[in-house]
Simulated scan of single mutants.
Amino acid sequence: MAIRRLHSEPRYSEIVIHNGTVHLGGQLADDLSGDIRQQTRETLANIDRLLAEAGTDKTRILSTTIYLRDIATDFAAMNEVWDAWVAPGASPARATVEARLYAPEVRVEMMVIAALP
């Protein structure tokens, strides 16, 4: 089965589709000056957009890995936004970890794996 790569650069692809599964590269907010709630909302909007481009949506997310710059400070607020966004009855498997992200202003990054319809 063929592998499709969308929005590819030398180091990564934003979307990789293979064998009925969509893998999104790490997604960030567009505006990194905002607080965790704003960055989480923008990150989730980018995930929605890329999943739609790949032909699926958030109801088909299988797993999500969330990286937080400061889990002690940002976990609760990120979860408030996440809980409002996640489709009822379609909660994916999920892990949340604290990580040093590529720039100090990045508060959250998410990787998603979803199924195609």
Rank of each mutant, 00 (worst) to 15 (best):
I113H: 00
P104Q: 08
R107A: 02
P117E: 11
I113G: 01
Y12S: 01
E53N: 03
L28I: 12
A45W: 00
T43S: 14
E109A: 15
R37S: 13
S8V: 11
W85N: 08
L101V: 05
G89Y: 09
F75H: 08
D35L: 11
I17K: 04
L24P: 15
P88S: 01
E14I: 09
L68D: 02
G34D: 10
S33P: 04
M110E: 07
R60D: 10
E53D: 10
E9Y: 14
G55I: 10
V81S: 07
N19A: 03
A84F: 06
L62H: 10
A77H: 05
V16D: 09
T65Y: 13
A93G: 05
L6Y: 01
A45Y: 00
T21S: 14
I47K: 04
A52T: 11
W82S: 14
P104E: 04
G20Y: 09
A95K: 15
T96E: 08
R4W: 04
A93F: 15
A84S: 08
M111A: 08
S91H: 13
T73P: 01
E98F: 04
D30M: 08
V112F: 13
S91D: 00
E53S: 06
E42C: 05
Q38I: 02
L51H: 14
A99D: 00
T73S: 10
R94G: 01
P117A: 07
D48F: 13
N79R: 00
V86I: 14
A72K: 02
V86H: 07
I3M: 11
V97Y: 12
G20T: 09
M111D: 12
L32G: 12
A90W: 03
Y67K: 13
A2P: 11
I17F: 11
E109W: 00
D31A: 09
G34W: 01
D31N: 15
A87C: 09
L24N: 03
E98D: 02
R94S: 06
M1F: 10
D74R: 02
V16S: 12
Q39G: 04
E14A: 15
D48Q: 11
S91T: 04
V16M: 12
Y12M: 00
G55L: 10
D31P: 05
V22T: 06
L28V: 10
A95T: 12
H23F: 13
V81Y: 06
A114L: 15
T73H: 13
G25W: 00
D48R: 15
V16P: 09
G34H: 01
M111E: 08
Y67T: 06
D83W: 05
E80S: 07
Y102T: 13
A115P: 02
Q27R: 14
